[in-house]
Write a protein that binds this DNA or RNA. Structure first.
Lengths: 342, 342
DNA sequence: TTGAAAGCGCTAACAC
DNA sequence: GTGTTAGCGCTTTCAA
């Protein structure tokens, strides 16, 4: 009873006194093309529907060298930012007939590399990678080998791989401008992992806004080296000791903002009374924080969807020369964590 | 250049003047067993390592009828609760040599069913399902067919399928007791989707605590029918109109609590000044809300890990008669959203 | 100690 | 209109 003898083309073909080929043709919608008799076609189709039979994709995969499978590597699926991306990737992929094999690199480059190899070995047709953001040496090879691979978020332009990212530069620039508009001049910047594209772009936007308004750039105000809560907490603590004249903090991630809030609370600085805060990346709960946090919203869902579409293109036209990068616009969500100075 | 001729046992065997069989044996660690000459063994192993060759798992899957793949179906991967479970599932599965194929049922029973069929068709060796919580008719069949399938969170005991869940009953009972200990008597209960095991168990725990202390149960105080933020918001609004004497709200999910907070804010009720709130399921941001929310923490990670272990057992011993359910203990995380009444 | 052959379930080229 | 054959890459008898 444990060995349900799974149906197969062969079994079905015997049942109807035809060849497996015929069954295959019917089931792949080629009955018309091969002018298979309508009766046979109907009989087979009905049977398949009734038994809810689908040709074994493993066998198909072996034969066709296509698994209809996409690998997805995420640094931390428990992080809502990545979870949001993943949700769209899964859904869009499904509507195109692809399944997702999910790996979690745990923010670990070695595990990331291992996961990539695993997925290629598993014969995925393509791959979407949110790199942890460091030493992309091995990625270069995949670019050269023309593998269908698209990068998301912590992208590496110039690698020759297509990518999708939020327009971090403009997002950060607008957020900084918003602070400036509200009279802030001493604005600290809690940056993320140094050397990653998002962090660099955000700091770039911050600097650009400052420059545009003629506000002097103070390097002591740019601190931090990770996107995590810990880092936000610690660096904020240090910051308010080292440069007590700051009136605003631009935290370049969600978690960083949470950490900053915790530090500020401990140090009895009110937000936005004493210090204004802007976060990066919107999440539902930010509206429920005290105070509701102003933030730069990233188009998660669009990012995930775009990644799949780019990948599908890539898979269709393997050697397209134009590896286009895509920057999706952010939007400033204004809540109540920025105070107007006069 | 696009067609890298992937290595194969055959290719390698030709290279070394042996048969594919031999290569297969070496690469599957059976050299010893078949007393293959140490030189051949080493040569082959070295080559495989250098070329980073692994026998094609698709072919292997076809031959062995094992894909080393586990299906995971989640109602909403963007929900941090499920993302937490998924993260452990992925990681534990990986350490056991299994990959995860992820599906998102979007809280939709039809899509859930479709995903299950898809995954079985894709020949997954087993499946972990977080059901959306309704009409499990088709699940019964899988139980009968002895398929390796484990349920998580919104479980259906009595279906004959192994499952993992938090001990929702005790968790809710303790939380209610905590409220009672703090002098609350009129405690409203924002329940989740009616008919789901977690919701029923939580309401059960709530009732049990009331009963144990001799506090009369008022059915008007138990409201709601979904786990979402909307529902928490609306039902809280209605609640404070219908039963203005309540002093506490027990929200049986995270999102429900967020909705309640929003409603309370709009209605100018302070938390915990006017109304105390307890949530269900801990998430990092709850500590940063205003006020930091007291909540019943679920052992997400353990739940994910346990699900995989249960599944692996199930896959090893296909017809084990003892389909054990597993209830993992919750813990009450006390923060500042409960006021002591006197 | 090693290899030849069969077959997992499927599709595509080439018959007829 | 339909079937025969071969082969995707692997493992596993069975034979030597």
């Amino acid at each position: 009873m444990n060995s349900r003898p799974r149906n197969s083309l062969k079994l079905i073909s015997e049942k109807f006194g035809v060849s497996p080929t015929t069954v295959s043709r019917v089931l792949s919608g080629q009955a018309q093309k091969y002018r298979i008799s309508p009766e046979t076609e109907k009989a087979i189709k009905d049977f398949a529907a009734k038994e809810n039979f689908t040709p074994n994709p493993i066998a198909k995969g072996l034969r066709l060298k296509k698994t209809h499978t996409i690998g997805l590597i995420i640094p931390d699926i428990a992080n809502p930012f990545f979870a949001g991306i993943a949700s769209q990737v899964v859904n869009v992929a499904r509507t195109h007939g692809y399944s997702i094999v999910l790996c979690d690199s745990e923010e670990n480059p070695a595990l990331e590399k291992q996961s990539i190899e695993l997925l290629w070995a598993r014969q995925v047709d393509g791959m979407i990678l949110c790199p942890v953001g460091q030493t992309p040496d091995y990625l270069e090879r995949y670019a050269r080998e023309q593998r269908p691979l698209v990068l998301v978020d912590r992208v590496f332009p110039g690698l020759g791989l297509p990518y999708v990212s939020a327009d971090n530069f403009t997002g950060a620039k607008n957020a900084t401008a918003h602070l400036l508009d509200n009279g802030h001049r001493r604005i600290a910047c809690l940056q993320g992992m140094v050397g990653t594209a998002p962090s660099e772009a955000r700091v770039g936007g911050y600097t650009a806004a400052l420059k545009e308004r003629g506000v002097p750039f103070d390097p002591r105000l740019v601190v931090g080296d990770s996107f995590g809560e810990q880092s936000g907490y610690l660096d904020t603590k240090l910051l308010i000791r080292a440069t007590p004249d700051i009136t605003a903090i631009f935290a370049m991630s969600n978690l960083l903002a949470l950490g900053a809030l915790r530090a500020l609370r401990e140090e009895n600085r009110s937000v936005p009374g004493d210090i204004s805060v802007i976060a990066f990346d919107d999440q539902p709960y930010l509206a429920h924080l005290s105070p509701p946090l102003t933030t730069v919203a990233q188009p998660h869902l669009e990012m995930g969807a775009a990644a799949v579409k780019l990948l599908l293109d890539e898979m269709r036209a393997p050697s397209s020369a134009t590896k286009s990068g895509l920057y999706l616009p952010t939007s400033l969500v204004i809540r109540q964590s920025v105070r107007k100075l006069d």
